[in-house]
Amino acid sequence: MDTHDSGVARPVLEGPDIARVLTRIAHEIVERAKGAEDVVLLGIPTRGVFLAQRLAAKLEEIVDAAGGSGRKIPAGGPGRKIPVGSLDITMYRDDLRMHPPRALARTDIPSEGIDGRLVVLVDDVLFSGRTIRAALDALNDIGRPRAVQLAVLVDRGHRELPIRADYVGKNLPTSLRETVKVQLAEEDGRDAVLLGAKPTAPAGER
């Protein structure tokens, strides 16, 4: 998750680019998992949830296409729905005392649960790694997956914790003076990843 700013920004990914990288990530998940039989996608609100839903749809397309071509992919067969949900990490953050109270988002775990399954956490931007640490803590209170992987649309660097994404849409080297803003049609009316400069405070406010 990343703070959205109001500064001038330029697009580094637009709608067709985002669609392509999500398709690539879906294929990488199928390849690494040798199918999608026990895959569960959990998005981190807000935009991570929308990305998880899109990835689930692409995984289902891959499974259906494989079944129609006669290729053997152990994914439950054509027409299988990929379980997808959301994981709110608000109460697990380590910066609660440093920010105003946050509204709780929704945690929605698929009826299949996560025990013994491959859980892929999905988020829009990987930055310090603290959001993902909180997500792992939240996940630990819900169940015991077979394994946990991480898919992000953008990795902007500047990690503060030893956390690495398994699937990355775009590696985007940034400075701490820059902001990364992800826009998705479900929330923002358009698909884009914008790179901008943090607004400079007036001299009297520094």
Rank of each mutant, 00 (worst) to 15 (best):
Asp5Arg: 15
Ser6Pro: 15
Arg10Cys: 10
Glu14Tyr: 09
Gly15Lys: 13
Pro16Ser: 10
Arg20His: 13
Arg20Ile: 11
Leu22Ile: 06
Thr23Ile: 10
Thr23Glu: 15
Ile25Ser: 02
Ala33Trp: 06
Gly35Phe: 10
Glu37Leu: 14
Asp38Trp: 07
Asp38Cys: 15
Asp38Arg: 12
Leu41Val: 11
Leu41Asp: 07
Gly43Pro: 04
Thr46Val: 14
Gly48Asn: 02
Val49His: 04
Gln53His: 05
Arg54His: 11
Leu55Ser: 02
Lys58Phe: 09
Ile62His: 05
Ile62Met: 02
Ile62Ala: 05
Ile62Pro: 04
Val63Gln: 00
Gly68Ala: 09
Ser69Gln: 15
Gly70Gln: 01
Gly70Thr: 01
Arg71Ile: 08
Lys72Pro: 11
Lys72Cys: 12
Ile73Met: 15
Pro74Met: 12
Gly76Ile: 03
Gly77Asn: 08
Gly77Lys: 10
Pro83Ala: 05
Ser86Trp: 02
Leu87Val: 06
Asp88Phe: 07
Ile89Met: 05
Thr90Ala: 08
Arg93Leu: 09
Arg93Lys: 12
Asp94Trp: 14
Leu96Glu: 04
His99Ile: 12
Pro100Asp: 08
Pro100Glu: 07
Pro100Lys: 09
Pro101Gly: 03
Thr107Asp: 00
Thr107Tyr: 01
Ile109Glu: 03
Pro110Tyr: 03
Glu112Leu: 15
Arg117Cys: 06
Arg117Ser: 02
Val119Ser: 08
Val120Cys: 10
Leu126Trp: 03
Phe127Arg: 07
Ser128Cys: 07
Ser128Phe: 01
Gly129Ile: 03
Arg130Ala: 01
Ile132Gly: 05
Arg133Pro: 05
Asp137Met: 06
Ala138Trp: 00
Ala147Gln: 12
Leu150Gly: 00
Ala151Asp: 00
Val154Arg: 03
Asp155Pro: 01
Asp155Asn: 03
Glu160Ala: 14
Leu161Tyr: 09
Pro162Leu: 13
Pro162Phe: 13
Ile163Trp: 00
Arg164Phe: 05
Arg164Cys: 04
Ala165Trp: 00
Ala165Val: 05
Tyr167Glu: 00
Val168Gln: 00
Val168Pro: 01
Gly169Asp: 02
Lys170Ser: 08
Asn171His: 10
Val180Gly: 04
Val180Arg: 07
Val180Asn: 01
Leu184Gln: 02
Leu184Arg: 03
Ala185Phe: 07
Ala185Glu: 13
Glu186Ile: 13
Glu186Lys: 15
Glu187Met: 14
Gly189Trp: 07
Gly189Glu: 02
Lys198Asn: 11
Pro199Leu: 05
Ala203Met: 13
Glu205Phe: 11
